[in-house]
């Protein structure tokens, strides 16, 4: 009985382990430390951004601006460092503040204006992608302070700094969800907004906070990406929101809000990361990879929804 429960609530981890085994058999290079390090470097950007997205989806919202925030941070940070000669730390902090403010703007549209999150964040996605293009004129910006490599290229021993940043973010994310009252509020709002308000939660204020956090984590993901690629590009974050949403939903966060765990999201991020990596090692072409990712998403959510439907009957 209990074993069943444990298996059920951690099914996503079993999927991950099964996948690792399959890929390791298919190509022994998969399990080599150097490849695992590469995977951790690759997933860092999704992983960091997925934390904010988890909060947003937990309250039954959505943030489509994640990808364009990544782009915006890429361009703004690069532009400040290269074209304006701003110190890298200052540029980084200003970029993160801008990313957070984009989130606050999303919060304003969703909470104060009452716009549907899908439309509000889609609008800001378009706007900020456009602004990024306007700043750089479509040209890549490169030639940073070599120390800027810290976030995306350096390692502590064998472990990449970007992976460490991701792990720290996950720890912070789980802490917010499980140990702080904010987490309790998020679950309550996701479960029932009206009842949450009547229980004394200032729902509107929380929505501002959540979208701001989503902006902040997307911004941080943007910094890590910029550091890794070494060049600010106007297409840097294109379509990233969908990969991030996939990780979160795959990790078992209900799109209807109210349910989900940070550990599930970590598994979701690792699955998408190793799936991409494993398929590359197996020489699966990139269009096929898209097909597989889509099918995995549909399967994961489909199975989850079906089991809930069965339970209800």
């Amino acid at each position: 009985m209990d074993v069943k429960k444990v298996v059920k609530s951690n099914a996503i981890w079993l999927v991950f382990i099964a996948m690792v085994i399959v890929f390791s058999i298919a190509n022994p290079n998969f399990i080599k430390p150097s490849n695992l390090v590469a995977i951790s470097r690759q997933v860092a950007v999704y992983g960091i951004a997925s934390i904010g997205m988890t909060f947003v989806i937990l309250i039954a919202g959505i943030d489509l601006s994640t990808g364009s925030i990544i782009t915006l941070v890429n361009i703004v940070c690069a532009y400040m460092m290269v074209n304006m000669g701003v110190n890298m730390w200052v540029a980084l902090i200003i970029s993160l503040i801008i990313a957070t403010l984009v989130g606050v703007l999303n919060g304003f549209m969703v909470s104060t204006l009452g716009m549907p999150a899908l439309i509000a964040t889609f609008a800001s996605q378009t706007v900020f992608e456009g602004i990024a293009y306007l700043i750089c004129g479509g040209m890549p910006i490169s030639g940073f302070d070599p120390n800027f490599d810290l976030f995306g290229r350096w390692s502590l021993g064998i472990v990449p700094i970007s992976a460490i940043i991701m792990i720290v973010c996950f720890v912070v994310g789980s802490f917010i969800l499980n140990k702080s009252y904010f987490g309790r509020y998020f679950y309550a709002i996701g479960g029932n907004e009206e009842a949450a308000e009547l229980s004394g939660i200032r729902v509107s204020r929380m929505k501002y906070l959540i979208y701001a956090l989503s902006g902040f984590f997307a911004g941080l993901a943007g910094i890590v990406m910029l550091s890794r690629t070494g060049s600010g590009q106007a297409t840097a974050g294109l379509g990233y929101e969908f990969d991030v949403i996939t990780c979160v939903v795959l990790g078992g966060v209900s799109v209807n809000g109210g349910f989900g765990k940070m550990s599930g999201v970590i598994a979701g991020v690792l699955i998408i990361g190793s799936l991409t990596n494993g398929m590359i090692l197996m020489d699966v072409n990139s269009y096929m990879q898209m097909v597989v990712k889509g099918v995995v998403l549909a399967l994961a959510v489909g199975i989850d929804c079906l089991s809930k439907k069965r339970q209800a009957a």
Partner: peptide, 9 residues
């Protein structure tokens, strides 16, 4: 169910 209790909590 709608306003009082947070059913999923």
């Amino acid at each position: 169910k709608r306003h009082g209790a947070l059913l999923t909590n």
